[in-house]
Amino acid sequence: MQHWPWFVGGAALAGVCVFHWLTLRRMLAVSGRFTAMINRARFGPEKQVEMTAEELRAAMLAATREAFGPDAAPDAPPTSTKPEAKAGPTLTKQQSAGMHLLFLVALLCGGLVSAFLAGGPSFSGGLRGELFNGFFGGKASSAAVLLFGGVLVGFGTRMAAGCTSGHGLCGVSRFQVGSLLATMAFFGTGVLTSLLLRWLL
């Protein structure tokens, strides 16, 4: 397969993130989808409530009076004077587990289409790649590496609350400090680990 030149790839990745935001009003982020599904498995489905700014204001006022007494919440206008912000916060639905699964399956299909257009797909155990197989040899050792590597990826991305798409692409481009640090961290250890592999194996 001929791989895309860097600027084509760059434009494609950026385009995907922008499209995601335009259609879903959410940042593209993948590890969070795994987190949401694991949470669903561990804690059960969350009851969803959606509210417009108006509904939220009314509900909050009622709840405040109920909690603190009728004098606690006089009818006051919102503190912000910016026109867009006057409406106030809303409650939006979290995405369902079904949506997360749909996204992941779609990723798989993307890979499938790509392989299909390249004359495939061909199925192989393990991973394809001279370097990979050169380093890790047989079935058992490569299986162990993939499993262990996967655990680190799953653990680390949840701990950092993001992965290459959430932090690396969407976070860094919006100058989020946490994302910059996370990206430096994972690139850093990625480089170190790879150099170590070359040196040791």
Binding site: L107, V145, G149, T157, A160, C163, G190
Partner: peptide, 24 residues
């Protein structure tokens, strides 16, 4: 953030994948 990112990077170098790439 830092520790998680660090662990993720090691995992990525070993498995060649981040969550999305594994699906692909």
């Amino acid at each position: 953030t830092l520790a998680g990112g660090a662990l993720f990077g090691i995992g990525w170098a070993l498995s060649g994948a981040c969550p999305s790439i594994a699906m692909v």
